[in-house]
């Protein structure tokens, strides 16, 4: 189990005739998704546009996205894993207990219909959001949906994509991977990268009060993180680089105002399908860019004596 069967958004635009959004509300959170990539565009192999596509929405509540969908499936909160597992069982022709399926809020007949539609799709895609990945089951929900999609490829073309947001989070993930091997939750405290989500991920480090300083770039954890994490940020020297005053900048010891990336600073942003887009600034800013501030801090740090051995050495594997 593992991996991800995915594509770039243009593949969806040009080919997808069966589109599922699971655990998200794109109408509000990704308002251009429908018109730019998934529903309304006339694709190379979907000349009818919206009429050539079927959209299914799976969520625990009715949201403004419902009216864009052809089929809305309302799952009981916390039952996504059971629904996905049932779909995997049906795909493989395994027996399922009708009464237990009904506990998910969806009947067996509805899920049988769904899996048949998925198998008959010419090109199917599932976009899944934090309503799936951050609710009961968490990463096991992600694993279940990724596995379902991989297994569907024995029948037809099927792909999936996590629907990500929050600025350039994908870009941070991509750069962390090429420089450390891991996407997030990395500790460099031993001089080489170690990965352990739950131990080295930001909230866990903060809640345990492990760190004695923080540098925050392109994020506003003061608005989103659990209170104990925010309390710890307020109690230590926290430095924030941000063009604006934010919840985090208010509790920080130092706030360095920087130029807005994409408006007055150049750079690259990675789209949710990991396609890099160039940012071309249209205005000049009196403020330095994030990159310049980090570079100048780094130059100062370099003046301090190194605390690691001077010569290169590869530590033998365990």
């Amino acid at each position: 189990m593992g991996g991800k069967v995915t594509c770039t958004l243009g593949e969806v635009k040009n080919r997808a005739d069966f589109i599922i959004y699971w655990g998200g509300n794109p109408a509000d959170c990704h308002p251009l998704h429908f018109t730019r990539y998934t529903l309304t565009p006339k694709g190379k192999h979907v000349p009818l546009g919206r009429k050539g596509r079927t959209m299914v929405l799976v969520d625990v509540r009715e949201t403004p996205s419902v009216k864009f969908s052809d089929i809305f499936l309302q799952v009981r909160p916390g039952k996504d894993f059971e629904v996905l597992t049932t779909l995997r069982a049906l795909l493989k022709g395994r027996p399922v207990d009708e009464a237990r399926v009904a506990e998910t809020g969806l009947s067996l007949a509805v899920l049988q219909d769904l899996i048949e539609r998925m198998k008959k799709a010419r090109f199917g895609v599932i976009f899944f959001g934090m309503g799936l990945t951050m609710t009961r089951g968490k990463h096991l929900n992600s694993a279940a949906i990724l596995s379902l999609v991989a297994e569907l490829n024995a029948f037809t073309k099927f792909v999936c994509m996590p629907v990500r947001g929050h600025g350039n989070v994908t870009g941070a993930d991509v750069v962390m991977r090429w420089s450390t091997g891991y996407p997030f939750g990395v500790s460099l405290s031993r001089g080489y990268p170690r990965f352990n989500p739950g131990e080295f991920s930001t909230i866990d480090v903060l809640v345990r009060r492990d760190n004695d300083a923080a540098l925050i770039l392109g994020a506003d954890p003061g608005a989103t993180m659990p209170q104990p994490a925010i309390d710890h940020l307020a109690s230590i020297p926290t430095i924030v680089l941000d063009p604006k005053v934010t919840h985090t900048s208010r509790l920080a010891r130092v706030h360095i105002t920087t130029a807005v990336t994409g408006i007055s600073a150049p750079g690259t942003v990675y789209r949710m399908d990991e396609i890099p887009l160039p940012l071309k600034p249209i205005l000049r800013s009196p403020y330095p860019t994030d990159e310049e501030v980090i570079r100048r801090i780094r130059e100062k740090v370099k003046e301090k004596p190194a605390w690691l051995p001077a010569s290169f050495a590869a530590v033998p594997c365990a």
Partner: peptide, 22 residues
């Protein structure tokens, strides 16, 4: 896709000359 491989891989330690890595 392969964090389990990096864990047992040779480690590259950050130094004044080199960057960290696996």
């Amino acid at each position: 896709m392969t964090p389990e491989d990096h864990r047992t891989a040779a480690k590259f330690i950050h130094s004044p000359v080199t960057r960290a890595g696996a």
